[in-house]
Write a protein that binds this DNA or RNA. Structure first.
Length: 541
DNA sequence: CAGCAGGGGGCGA
DNA sequence: CGCCCCCTGCTGA
C-alpha cells in the first residue's frame, strides 16, 4: 500500500526560493511590514524577518496591526541594509570598519546567525540530510570568489570555543556574555578561527554569512526555554531562561524606567504586560544601571496617544567589546502601530528621525512641517497676515492675533467688541473683501497685484521672494491676509497705522532697509536653539 | 505681560 | 497634505 508513495524533489528549490525572495524584496511585493531606519523605510516580509529574528517574530506575533512599522532608532541605515541582505540572501559583504556596528545592530535585533545562534531547522527532526546542502549551492561559498585573500567569512554565532567555561563560570553579566560571544565574531580577535588569520591585514570587506547549524551544535548551546529568544545564553542562569517567563522581574532589567525587555513601556500595547522576552537586564553601557537609555533621548516615547510606542531597549549584550559604538549607539526600538497613518508619519519624523526636510528659503532653518516652515518664513517676508480688526495690529500667526485680542482688547473690556464678531468671522470677512478687489477680479491676487493695490500693506516678501525661488510667494501668502481688512480696519488705518507694524512697500526697500529689517531676525533664528538637532542656518549678516 | 517663534495633536479633504 | 488649534518657552518693555 506504500508502494505508491513517490518522493518529488525540487532540486533547485532553495536557490529558486532565495531568488524569488530576492525579487520579492526588490519589488516590495507582498511585504507586510516596514522597517524604518534613519528615515528610510524598508518594506519587508514578516516571514523573513520572523525567520531570521526571534525578536521580530515576537513583535509580529504580538502586534495586532497587519502592517506594523518597526522603527529602529539609532540604527544606521547601512547596517539595516546589510542586515536585510543578510536575512534575505544569507550573506552580506560589509566593510570591516562597519562590522562592529553591524554586529551591534544584529544583537539588538537578535538576528540569527549574527547575534543569536541560528537553530538548525532540521535539528528538531533529527534528520539533517547531508545532501540538503549539496542540492542548493549556497551563495555564501562565493567568498572564495573574492580575489582578495583577506576576505573572510564570519560565523558570528559560532560558539566561543575558547572560553565556553568562562561564560558559565561567571555570573553571566551581559558584558561577559556579549564579550565572549562577540569575540567570536570579531575578525580582529584571536578566538575566531585563527586559521583565517583575520587579525592581520584587515581586509576592507568582510563577508558575513548565515551559518548552518551544525557548526554551532557543540560548545554553544542555548539552554533557555525561549526559542531563539535569548542572545545571552551560555550560563542559562540569569535571564536567559528567565526572560522566557512571563513573570520576569522588572528589576532584572534595571528598573522600571527603562523597559529592558523590549516591549514593556509603551502603555497600551497588548503585549506589554507579561513577557517581553528577550532583552537583558542590563544594557551594555554599564553606566546607567537603572536603564542606560539617555534621559534626554527618550523624552517622548511614552504616551503618544493613539500611537503606541514600545519601549526602547538597549543592546542585549552588555559590554562594549565593540566600543565605542556600543556605548554611543544604544539601540532603541519602537514599535508603532499603524493606527493613524498621519500620526505615524509625524511620529516617525518628529521623534525618531528628526526629519526636518523643509528649509527656510531665507535662513536655512529646518522644519519638520511645511506649514511650520511657511509660518516661519513670514518672519523674513515681513508678512503679518493676521490683523486685529480693532487696532489693526498685525501678527504672523493667527494665534498671536487671537491672543492679542483676548489679552489686550477683551481683557481690557473694550466696548463694542461683541458686535464685531469673533476672530473667525472677521477673517471670513477679510476673505470676502479680498474677493472684491477694487481693480482686479482675480482671487487671490498675486503679490504684485496686492502690492500695487495696497502699497501700505505690501509685504516685504515681494522683495525677499527674489531670493526665495524655492517657495513661490503665492504658496507662502495666504489669500486672506494681504489686504487691509474690513471697513472697520480701513477706518482705523489712518489713526492706527502709526502704532501698527506697518509693512514697508517693497518698492521702498533698499538694501540698507532690507538689512536692517532682516538681519535681526536672521540672527535670532540662528541663535534659536533646537533641542532635537543642530540646525545649520545661513547667516545673512 | 504682550508679543513672538515654534512644536505638536486633531481633523478633514 | 493643509489647516486649525493648543501649548510652551523665550524676549523685551
Amino acid at each position: 500500500m506504500e508502494d505508491g508513495l513517490l518522493s518529488l524533489k525540487w532540486n533547485n528549490h532553495k536557490t529558486t526560493f532565495f531568488d524569488i525572495l530576492r525579487v520579492l524584496r526588490e519589488k516590495a511585493n507582498y511585504t507586510d511590514a516596514t522597517i524604518a531606519v534613519e528615515g528610510k523605510f524598508y518594506p519587508v516580509h514578516k516571514l523573513v524577518m520572523s525567520t531570521c529574528s526571534e525578536y521580530f517574530s515576537e513583535i509580529f506575533e504580538r502586534t495586532p496591526c497587519k502592517s506594523p512599522v518597526i522603527v529602529l532608532k539609532d540604527v544606521r541605515s547601512q547596517d539595516m541594509d546589510a542586515l536585510l541582505d543578510y536575512m534575505y540572501l544569507g550573506e552580506v559583504n560589509v566593510n570591516q570598519n562597519d562590522l562592529a556596528s553591524l554586529l551591534k545592530t544584529a544583537e539588538c535585533l537578535r538576528i540569527k546567525g549574527l547575534a543569536v545562534p541560528d537553530e538548525d531547522p532540521t535539528k528538531t527532526k533529527k534528520q539533517l540530510l547531508p545532501d540538503d546542502r549539496r542540492e542548493s549551492p549556497p551563495p555564501k561559498r562565493r567568498r572564495h570568489e573574492d580575489p582578495s585573500s583577506t576576505s573572510q567569512t564570519l560565523r558570528p554565532t559560532s560558539p566561543p570555543a575558547s572560553s565556553p567555561s568562562k561564560n558559565s563560570s561567571t555570573s553571566g553579566t551581559a558584558g561577559d556574555r556579549a564579550g565572549a560571544q562577540r569575540t567570536s565574531s570579531l575578525p580582529g580577535t584571536q578566538s575566531q578561527d585563527s586559521s583565517h588569520d583575520s587579525s592581520i591585514d584587515p581586509p576592507p570587506m568582510v563577508k558575513v554569512e548565515m551559518e548552518e547549524a551544525e557548526d554551532l551544535e557543540d560548545g554553544y548551546r542555548r539552554d533557555n526555554s525561549y526559542e531563539g529568544g535569548s542572545i545571552n545564553e551560555g550560563d542559562g542562569g540569569d535571564y536567559g531562561s528567565e526572560v522566557s517567563k512571563s513573570e520576569h522581574d522588572p528589576e532584572n532589567y534595571g528598573g522600571g524606567s527603562y523597559a529592558g525587555p523590549s516591549l514593556q513601556q509603551g502603555g497600551d500595547l497588548p503585549w506589554e504586560e507579561g513577557d517581553s522576552s528577550s532583552f537583558p537586564p542590563e544594557g551594555f553601557s554599564g553606566d546607567h544601571p537603572g536603564g542606560q537609555q539617555p534621559q534626554g533621548d527618550d523624552d517622548d516615547d511614552d504616551g503618544d496617544g493613539p500611537l503606541t510606542v514600545a519601549a526602547p531597549h538597549s543592546s542585549p549584550n552588555g559590554p562594549p567589546l565593540l566600543t565605542p559604538i556600543s556605548q554611543a549607539r544604544q539601540c532603541q526600538l519602537c514599535l508603532v502601530t499603524l493606527a493613524n497613518a498621519n500620526l505615524l508619519r509625524r511620529h516617525v519624523e518628529d521623534h525618531h528621525f528628526h526629519i526636518r526636510k523643509y528649509d527656510c528659503a531665507h535662513c536655512g532653518k529646518k522644519f519638520k512641517r511645511k506649514e511650520h516652515k511657511e509660518r516661519h518664513e513670514r518672519i523674513h517676508t515681513g508678512e503679518k497676515p493676521f490683523a486685529c480688526y480693532i487696532c489693526n495690529a498685525r501678527f504672523t500667526q493667527k494665534e498671536h492675533l487671537k491672543g492679542h485680542i483676548e489679552n489686550v482688547h477683551h481683557k481690557h473690556g473694550e466696548k463694542g467688541l461683541e458686535g464685531m464678531g469673533d476672530l473667525e468671522d472677521r477673517e471670513d470677512k477679510d476673505e470676502e473683501d479680498m474677493d472684491l478687489p477694487p481693480a482686479s477680479s482675480s482671487s487671490p491676487p498675486p503679490p504684485n497685484t496686492t502690492s500695487a493695490s495696497s502699497p501700505s500693506l505690501a509685504p516685504v516678501s515681494s522683495l525677499i521672494s527674489l531670493a526665495s525661488t524655492a517657495s513661490p510667494l503665492a504658496s507662502i501668502l495666504p489669500p486672506s491676509t494681504l489686504l487691509a481688512n474690513t471697513a472697520a480696519a480701513t477706518s482705523l488705518t489712518s489713526s492706527s497705522s502709526s502704532s501698527s507694524p506697518a509693512l514697508i512697500p517693497a518698492s521702498d526697500l533698499n538694501m540698507n532697509q532690507f538689512t536692517a529689517l532682516y538681519a535681526p531676525v536672521t540672527r535670532k533664528t540662528v541663535n534659536s536653539p533646537n533641542k532635537h538637532m543642530q540646525t545649520i542656518t545661513i547667516n545673512f549678516n
